[in-house]
Amino acid sequence: MKIKADTDKCVGAGMCALSLPEVFDQSEEDGTVVVLDPEPPEGLATGVRRAVNLCPSGALSVEE
């Protein structure tokens, strides 16, 4: 699983960082998504998919 983040689309709502802080953080400067682990272990796959789905702006996607 590979996570892609589009910081131009990101609106800094923080849903990803809230739901899966092991994988997602936010930039100190403008609050946009920072992917801490772009290829997270399989054990986090469900959490990643949920975070991607929760993203309000469609900034996140995964390649399986």
Partner: peptide
């Protein structure tokens, strides 16, 4: 909208 919001989002992060 984007221009204004981006100036503020850093102030309201989870951290």
């Amino acid at each position: 909208h984007t221009r204004y919001r981006k100036l503020l989002t850093g102030q309201f992060t989870v951290r």
